[in-house]
């Protein structure tokens, strides 16, 4: 579905990604783990077209999207929930959801999808007229994921959804991610620092260090890999 081939991304003269290659098949949950500053978020930004790769190629269902405009990429069905959730603080919860559906015109289905996300997160329904900025961190993460669902993603890119949240909320969010993958047949690309969590959820995983992919295997094998256990699982 998504094929990243040897991309190199730069911030000015500083190279953030070096020959990164990742392949994601339809229906999978793939995770990318690595330490802070390894280039995980940059990888997502290159996919979404906000930090286009200088070299290499990204294709989505065979279509070259390496240098496509961000809004065209969203139109293809690649939606990102960026790090830090980025809820619009002065838009209400329901307006935030409307923005998720910005490119859609199917009014009836939008209504149905709103009901769907409210059923996933009943709390959001209670707070639908509240401003996004007044929600707690966990609620904002729920809203961020819901907003992305409203865009009808084929491929959902999640950047550190567990960051800064209480363990119980993290469990809830992970369960929902699994549910979206099963029920909506949405392919998931999950970027996480919390390797333990990510490898439990994912089918396959990639390990990133200083801008390079150093390992890739099934999640099960990665969990049992000695280097991964030492470096990321704290065992």
């Amino acid at each position: 579905m998504l094929k990243i081939e040897n991309i190199q991304t730069f911030y000015g003269n500083i190279q953030a990604l070096q020959d990164v290659s990742i392949e994601i098949n339809a229906g999978e949950i793939i995770t990318l783990i690595g330490a802070n500053g390894a280039g995980k978020s940059t990888t997502l930004m290159s996919i979404s077209g906000l930090e286009p790769a200088r070299h290499g190629k990204i294709t989505f269902n065979g279509k070259d999207i390496t240098h496509m405009d961000p809004d065209k990429i969203v139109q293809l069905g690649i939606i990102q929930v960026p790090e830090g959730r980025r809820i619009f603080p002065y838009l209400s919860v329901s307006e935030n959801l409307d923005m998720g559906a910005f490119l859609r015109n199917d009014k009836e289905e939008i209504k149905r999808d709103i009901e769907y996300v409210y059923s996933l997160f009943p709390l959001l329904k209670e707070r639908r007229n509240q401003q996004g900025g007044t929600l707690s961190g966990g609620e904002q993460q729920m809203l961020a994921i819901s907003r992305a669902i409203m865009a009808k993603p084929k491929l959902l890119l999640l950047d550190e959804p567990s960051l800064g949240l209480a363990p119980i909320i993290v469990q809830q969010i992970m369960a929902i991610i699994k549910k979206i993958n099963k029920e909506q047949k949405t392919t998931i690309f999950l970027v996480e620092q919390n390797a333990n969590l990510a490898l439990k959820l994912a089918d396959r995983g990639y390990v990133m260090e200083t801008g390079r992919i150093t390992l890739s295997d099934s999640a099960k094998n990665l969990r049992e890999n000695d280097d991964v256990r030492k470096a990321y699982l704290g065992i």
Binding site: S48, P70, V74, I79, R86, M99
Partner: peptide, 14 residues
């Protein structure tokens, strides 16, 4: 309004 609050996020939503 969304763009004025967070232009980058607005782009990520198309």
């Amino acid at each position: 309004r969304a763009t004025s609050q967070d232009a980058k996020m607005a782009q990520l939503l198309g």
